[in-house]
Design a protein around this nucleic acid. Structure first.
Lengths: 153, 153
DNA sequence: CAAGATTGAGGGATCAATCTTC
DNA sequence: GAAGATTGATCCCTCAATCTTG
């Protein structure tokens, strides 16, 4: 990698690591949710019924099934979500946000969103935000078609 | 967050998560190094003497001291690095890459760099790479001046 | 007391193996 | 046999507490 490539690559990694750490610290200091908790609850409350199939949720979050399964168990233990057997496909199950989960995400969202603005969104121009979204889409599409980078070009 | 802001923010997180996972899988499949091992060894072998103060290394990597300390212990146990007492400041210590560590990073680097190219660098224009490096620098500078986003604007 | 560094405990993430249902 | 999901082992990361030297 030449200088400009390395700077982009390492800069990207450092930026996201530092931003994630800041988000995790803020949530941990001001709320009862961890950053992963927050992300799961946002996805669940995004639609009105507040439920998802576990596998769909994993895809939406970009998480491995096993990671999600472990995390959902911990969240269920703390009363943030419920697991409900799925009648249509009895291998699967639904995850549903509880009243307590809704209340926790409602309390946590404003502070989190404000931090995303202060540390990220407000520092970028609209064109830069669009360019970033475009780049991310391109890279993720390519990853989906070639998960381990083994294709000949 | 409006649509374009949310797409940039979530896209960025998903992209980096997926790229890191791909890097970790490739290293784990093809070499004896984990991704964190790789990053530490790259930093150490970047300068010719192959040694660093622990604290400097943490800053360079953007890692917390405690994380680095735990990781260095595991790497020392596996013979990849040595810890050497520092005479100038007897609170501190040096980390030095071993011959085995050098050999491991030499073996791992080409495959890793090729994957970074295939999954990331080759998908971006030079202007996009430069823009990304610029954005990362800006965000990280701001984080350094206001680590927890508590400043009034 | 502050700075460099380590430790132990506890939560989080990954891999391979497993179980059930399709 | 494959897909949805879980489990247990293991490694990794964070936090708070600690130790030593400046």
């Amino acid at each position: 990698l030449n200088d400009s490539e390395a700077q982009a690559w390492r800069g990207l990694q450092h930026m996201v690591m530092a931003l994630d750490a800041a988000m995790a610290r803020q949530l941990s200091a001001d709320t009862s949710l961890s950053y992963p908790d927050y992300v799961v609850l946002v996805a669940l409350t995004d639609r009105r019924d507040g439920r998802r199939r576990v596998n769909d949720l994993a895809g939406e979050l970009g998480w491995e099934q096993s990671r999600l399964s472990h995390h959902l168990r911990r969240m269920a233990d703390r009363g943030l979500i419920d697991k409900i057997p799925c009648d249509q496909d009895r291998r699967g199950s639904w995850v549903e946000v509880t009243a307590q989960g809704r209340s926790a995400i409602r309390a946590a969202a404003p502070g989190h969103v404000e931090l995303v603005r202060r540390l990220f969104v407000d520092l970028l121009s609209p064109a830069e935000l669009e360019a970033l979204a475009d780049i991310a889409g391109r890279v993720l599409d390519h990853l989906r078609s070639d998960p381990d980078g083994t294709d000949p070009d």
